[in-house]
Simulated scan of single mutants.
Amino acid sequence: MLSVVVAPWGDEPVFERNGDVPHDAASTMKIAVLAALRRTGADPREPVPVVNAFTSRAGGEFANDPEWDSDPVPWTLLGATVPLGLLTERMITHSSNLATNLCLARAGHPAVDEVWRRAGATRSASPRGIEDHPARDAGVHNRVTARDLVRLVQSLDDETELLELLERNAFRVDLAAGLPPGTRVAFKNGWFPGVRHCVGLVHPDDCPPYLLAVCYTGPLASGADEAAGDPAARLLARVSAAVWERRHAISGAPALAGPPVPAR
């Protein structure tokens, strides 16, 4: 299943394909955790013990597996106390699962729920932590739609420091790979076997900025960090390149002429 939504920054979508179909959220839900921290007034200087034990939404505890984490740095800090801002940065720039759960524990699930509500999300939520398998097995799922991911990033319009952090994403694959080198893009991607998603705010030099969200669930997604090992990452890059070619038609257009979705 491929879902695509394109929207001018600050306006309604001009193109959608399966925009309201739910997908497993993967790491895109980390944007909601980021916004929740900021809106609850969390101090980036606040000391946080780095532990690997978290309360499951199903009761009991769960832990992260370093083999499933794309960022080794927080794991070297286990047992230490570090500033919350360091964990927030690694959650976004290197998609650390361990840092995400530490940030989520600080922000709290109600604050994350409020982020989605304020964004106007209709089918997306992140009620559990990353790798909370007991909750997942009990039917508690993190879900997103492409349309809600666009709404989520739109809701950051007056929080420029959060968008600037998204611009520092170290994984320049997926949507970023479909853009000309040096193009400004604030984005978050997420993947595991069977799933590959990305949402980004693209800033062309020659026209107004636009939002693009692409969610893919299916056999093309290998779960590899790099595009060379994941056909789904290359698919997302081709979608991004196709939208880029039509970027001048996005702002103020009633609809894009034809689907900006290339053949696989």
Rank of each mutant, 00 (worst) to 15 (best):
G223C: 03
S222C: 02
A232H: 01
D230A: 00
R128E: 03
D158L: 07
R147S: 12
R151I: 07
D137E: 15
R147F: 05
G194K: 00
V173Y: 08
A241P: 00
A177N: 04
L152K: 11
A135R: 04
S126F: 02
A232D: 01
E226A: 10
L220W: 01
R238N: 05
L152P: 10
D157P: 00
R168D: 09
R196C: 15
R143L: 15
C198W: 10
W244T: 10
R128T: 05
L166A: 08
R184M: 08
P193C: 02
V199A: 11
R234I: 05
D225H: 06
D225N: 09
K188H: 02
L256K: 02
V195A: 01
L162R: 06
V214R: 00
R196T: 11
G182M: 02
L212K: 10
H203E: 13
D148P: 15
E226H: 10
A241L: 06
D148L: 15
H248V: 09
E131D: 12
A135Y: 02
E159Y: 06
R246H: 06
A233T: 11
R136L: 12
C207E: 14
R238L: 08
N142K: 01
V153N: 12
W191T: 13
R147I: 06
E164N: 13
S126P: 02
P181E: 15
A221T: 01
L175N: 15
A146G: 06
S240I: 08
V144Q: 08
C207Y: 04
L163I: 15
L162I: 11
